[in-house]
Write a protein that binds this DNA or RNA. Structure first.
Lengths: 189, 189
DNA sequence: ATACGATTTTGATAATTATCAAAGGACGTA
DNA sequence: TACGTCCTTTGATAATTATCAAAATCGTAT
């Protein structure tokens, strides 16, 4: 069983015919570092599961790129706001490493929902999972200083600092690159 | 049809038997201002729909109360993090006005999911809706200054300043009460 | 109307963090 | 090895916002 199906099955057990129906609307892709997976202003119609690699989801604020979040192995690298709402997104998504992803064509999922009610359940559980991730991030901003947020990020992706630029991380944390640099210098004992 | 059923039907049409099944696990309540609906540390097992009134969802940070969000008429006033995860919440919920709410016993919903697949769909769409609300709030923090966030809040609940304390609003915006006070004084032309 | 308690505003100062500029480092290529 | 480019760190200053204290305002009961 491939990584994508293992991911789906971790939410709720799927029978063979359901898995086949899902794979029929899913494409496995190998993508090079630097590739833009999605551009703001478009409607996101693909559900991208990251088998390996790192994606940076970002938007523009006052002409500058601001990282909204990093998706790493085993996570979703889509403009979820648009995917779920059907409205244009203002996120951009770039793969900052060579990555392998499974792209489910979300605009073809409705018949699958209708044929297999268990897929409704799967959808519900997956969105719930992502809701909780977003809530975590919200709490992180509410509760934690930039230092603490940086430490939490390191727990999630320990080698993030080696895998992407400092400026990307700083904007994710909501602080300037210089400030992050200073935090790191005091912080390494 | 009551407000709660209208709310549910706005996501996906429900037949009479589904509505009955849902109402069987739902209680309508009138609650006085000031009442604590939920205490942190517990597992939230009720899905509260606010027919009228305002709820303040808050947590403690360094001994001080911080507002996570305000739920007003037509919204959900539950510790969603716990409701969806089954883990203890660290939110508290207080009704800051006399309110009417519909409390669905979420721990009794599983049989309803099994009997009526459309309820899985309903759940999926409702969570999706709440995901988008949370994403909006995230973007609000990322994009907007305290001033702009205050203005957006006023768009959502125009009379919020009359209906709850300034300190509650300030902590929601992530700024000190004094700072909000100063913003308001420059801002009223 | 008056007084009380709660809430909000104002003032002064301190802490935090951004910004701008320049200096270091790392790394690939000639 | 030397050079160029990109990225990170350091330094100095400015802007933003918090904090603490006191004054003003509001709401309500007397």
């Amino acid at each position: 069983m491939n990584a994508f199906l293992r991911y789906l099955n971790s939410f709720t057990p799927l029978t063979g015919d359901v898995q086949e129906a899902i794979l029929r609307i899913t494409i496995r892709r190998e993508v090079k570092a630097g590739e833009l997976l999605f551009d703001q202003g478009n409607i996101c119609k693909e559900f991208h599961y990251l088998e390996s690699g790192i994606a940076r989801v970002f938007y523009y604020k006052d002409g500058k790129e601001v990282t909204a979040w990093f998706a790493s192995q085993g996570q979703i690298a889509s403009a979820i706001d648009s995917l779920f709402s059907g409205k244009p997104s203002f996120y951009n998504i770039q793969l900052t490493e060579d990555s392998i992803l499974w792209s489910l064509q979300f605009d073809k999922i409705e018949p699958v929902f209708e044929q297999f009610p268990v897929v409704e359940r799967l959808g519900r559980l997956m969105i719930t999972h992502n809701y909780l991730l977003l809530d975590e991030r919200m709490k992180l901003f509410a509760f934690c200083s930039a230092e603490e947020r940086y430490e939490k990020l390191l727990l999630q992706i320990p080698d993030i600092a080696q895998r992407t630029k400092l400026g990307y991380i700083a904007s994710y944390l909501g602080i300037s690159q210089e400030h992050l640099s200073r935090i790191r210098s005091t912080y390494k004992k």
